[in-house]
Design a protein around this nucleic acid. Structure first.
Length: 571
DNA sequence: GCCGTTTTCGGCCCGACTGTTTTCAGTCG
């Protein structure tokens, strides 16, 4: 079956090429929208097609007759003739150039026409040699910096890295008292798993003075610009940080605008327009009257809807939900009672069980699962039944010291290539919690992976499936599985899927969390800690759960202890 | 290319910044 992300890529490429060809901008937008729709659709497009043909596809908002026809062509023949024609009509370099920040379709075309470079690296050296013939000084510097940024960061940085840089900048700005309401915006505020630029906004009585102060930020290695109300620096770790001063009387409108996402804002503005209003970063126009909003609550309230949390603003149905008072009551850190997945120095963690327990108490946890690796994971010093028995004695003795903490005897059992587990049932029954994970055979077919996961979930002792997609953000794609089937089984078997809070995993990803939630699946948020410090990663898991619309009832970490134990025994 | 409880044609979200083309094109969010 063709995956929805494959369709998303096809439409994305359509829009990129059409942009380079200077096509009608609404046609370009239509493909972008179709791409976005494909990504966020709960059901496989191919399945929709099988049910009702191209006519059924036409019913999907954002997909009309033209795109429905292309979907049909791709399902039937594995290709889209028009796209192949388009590809041939353009040099491939132009598409690549356009992905560099600061380079749009016009510049991309010009760059290829003038330099005929074979790739981006080649282009860079040619620009350095003779770029000044074609571009004025500042434009050239801007393009070169864009290439550097694009190369150096592999696209986008991890959320955890961006938050660290933002925290440093916000503290510096707040300390000065030159600015107040200092707030990170953009994908950072929405807690997206990766972040491009770091954007920070604030209000200030003397904007120029505040920007001047920002330009002296000790974390900066380079100041790109400093104007009357906006400054840009490059942080020593390579990230671009923008700081912008906003007028207080429309701060809410501006905050809303800069938080995005783009898709959310387009939808919001379209809705406003349909109802005789017009939304911009300055306020909301009703007729000739401009209503400036000091808070975001006012923005959404004026449009007749409930306030939407930043994590939900991805145009995944939140606007409709806000209009009908159907928004979820999102899970919060304070609802969380513990951590399900922590490694000790019995396997590949570096902390003693006692130290982990003490740290968990400090963090306010009511429970902690010590879940070391099992025997086949030799590389991680996985334990066999005998060593788990020895470890059990240590857990017993720590329990006596920390009576307020429920220290769960747990393991991360390995799912073999055929779906079998590497501990016998008679060993597994002694554990309070069992998490089962895949650690090898990532390249198996979708069918095989799906079967493996289902077989593991059908084991009566398995409570949680660990890092379900196996991805490492920016480094490794997850394995492919038929998620529909996996989620169905998880719901049936009452097995929780892990939301792994490790910042380079964040696995399940938020889009799949949302799909699984709709199918009745519950989730275990876990740090997968290998050290004491990593026990503090839980908030990253919370942000994934929130982006997946999860409420308290969807998260097993939030269950009252009696309910939790009941679930563990039943599952 | 998509869409329609005024429309099957004629709209489509809206504005700012940057550089340098002194009246605007290109890019971005």
């Amino acid at each position: 079956m063709v995956s929805n992300s494959e369709f998303a890529k096809i439409f994305e490429e359509f829009s990129e090429i059409l942009e380079l060809k200077d096509a009608n901008r609404f046609r370009i937008a239509a493909y972008q929208k179709a791409s976005q729709t494909a990504k966020s659709l709960g059901e496989p497009i191919e399945q929709i097609y099988e049910r009702g043909g191209a006519k059924e596809l036409d019913n999907i908002p954002g997909i009309g007759k033209g795109i429905a026809q292309k979907i049909e062509e791709y399902i039937k023949t594995g290709r889209v003739k028009e796209l192949e024609g388009l590809r041939k009509s353009l040099p491939r370099q132009e598409v690549e150039y356009m992905r560099v920040p600061g380079i749009g379709p016009k510049t991309a075309t010009k760059l290829h026409k003038e330099f005929r470079a074979k790739d981006l690296a080649d282009l860079k050296s040619r620009l350095e040699k003779s770029g000044s013939k074609y571009f004025k000084e500042k434009t050239l510097a801007n393009i070169l910096r864009g290439i550097e940024v694009y190369k150096g960061m592999g696209g986008r940085m991890l959320l955890v890295e961006a938050r660290e840089i933002a925290r440093e900048a916000v503290e510096y700005l707040e300390k000065s008292r030159l600015a107040s309401k200092v707030t990170p915006v953009g994908s950072l505020r929405r807690f997206k798993e990766t972040v491009g630029d770091i954007d920070i906004v604030a209000i200030a009585p003397d904007p120029k003075k505040a920007i001047e102060y920002f330009s002296k930020f000790p974390g900066a290695k380079e100041v790109i610009s400093k104007g009357e109300a906006k400054g840009t620096i490059i942080h020593r770790l390579g990230a671009q940080v923008d700081f912008e001063i906003m007028p207080e009387e429309s701060f809410g409108s501006l905050l809303q605008h800069f938080t995005g996402s783009k898709e959310h804002n387009i939808h919001l503005r379209t809705y406003a327009q349909e109802h005789g209003m017009s939304v911009s970063e300055h306020g909301i126009k009703k007729g000739k009257k401009l209503i400036r909003c000091r808070t975001e609550e006012e923005v959404y309230g004026t449009l007749g809807m409930k306030y939407i949390e930043p994590e939900l603003r991805e145009d995944r149905g939140e606007i409709e939900a806000a209009l009908n008072d159907k928004l979820p009551e999102l899970i919060e850190m304070k609802d969380i009672k513990g951590d399900f997945h922590v490694h000790s120095n019995w396997s590949d963690g570096n902390a003693k069980i006692e130290d982990l327990a003490r740290k968990a108490v400090e963090l306010g946890h009511k429970f902690l699962a010590i879940s070391d690796h099992t025997v086949t994971l030799g590389i991680a010093r996985g334990l066999d039944s005998k060593r788990f028995n020895q470890r059990r004695r240590e857990i017993e003795s720590v329990r006596k010291k920390y009576r307020g903490l429920n220290l769960f005897d747990s393991c991360e059992v390995n799912i073999g290539s055929d779906g079998s587990l590497d501990l016998p049932d008679e060993a597994m029954k002694y554990f309070d919690v069992v998490t089962a994970s895949i650690h090898s055979g990532f390249n198996q077919s979708k069918e095989q992976i799906t079967k493996r996961m289902i077989r593991a979930m059908e084991n009566a002792y398995v409570d949680v499936i660990g890092h379900p997609t196996g991805r490492l953000i920016n480094r490794r794609e997850g394995y492919s599985a038929d998620w529909e089937q996996v989620f169905k089984t998880a719901a049936q078997e009452n097995v929780a899927l892990e939301i792994n809070a490790s910042p380079d995993r964040l696995d399940l990803p938020d889009g799949l969390v949302l799909k699984a939630k709709k199918m009745g699946v519950r989730f275990a948020i876990s740090t997968d800690s290998h050290s004491l410090e990593q026990l503090s990663f839980l908030p990253f898991g919370i942000s994934v759960a929130r982006r997946g619309w999860c409420e308290k009832k969807d998260i097993v970490n939030a269950l009252e202890l009696e309910e939790l134990i009941k679930w563990l025994r039943g599952g």
